[in-house]
Amino acid sequence: ACPVSAASRSGQQIWESFSQCFTPAVREVVEFAKGIPGFQELSQHDQVMLLKSGTFQVLMVRFCTMFNPEERTVTFLNGQTYPLSTLRALGMGALLDAIFDFSEKLGTLRLEPDEMALFMAVVLVSADLSGIVDMGAVEQLQEGLIRALHSLIHCRRPDESASIFPKLLLHLPDLRTLNNLHSDKLLAFRIDS
């Protein structure tokens, strides 16, 4: 684990380091996807298409759990911790504001870890379906996961499920908007000769 970047690091070094944080996070989403019941029964082509269009959105949900509101820092999977001020200095201000707004809204639902995990599975299989070959199989998987999420929330919070579940589903278009607005942000990787 690395501590918060020292003041002596250049902006370029911070940008490279921050860019590299995404690599283990993306790999974790791939492993997570493989654990979703039914995901690996899709064709490899469709698995790849769902991951390519849905990973950013899953990362945004994941990001909410990596954010420390008291310290105003974000800790990535490789242990790197960044204060928000550092991330803003990288030019990520608009993306950060959007993620924090989203985190606040999602935070009000107070999801348990298993509810959050099932929600992330729904997010992944509900991403942009253009390019999917077997639409029927993906839609069947979507419906199964959405039913499971509804069932889990209803069993755990029978008095609240009528309000929480629709609010959860309303986050799906928010995530697609975040993806469309921000996934073209630039990262930088140093290539050593």
């Binding site: 995404f22 390519k52 950013f56 996934s183 942000k185 990787f189």
Partner: peptide, 25 residues
């Protein structure tokens, strides 16, 4: 001098996913 490769977050995600599936084939 250091050389840098610049890519979008979307392209980086796509690259990692392609790499992962190719490695596991």
């Amino acid at each position: 001098p250091k050389t840098h490769r610049v890519m979008t977050l979307a392209d980086h995600i796509s690259h990692i996913i392609t790499q992962d599936f190719a490695r596991n084939q």
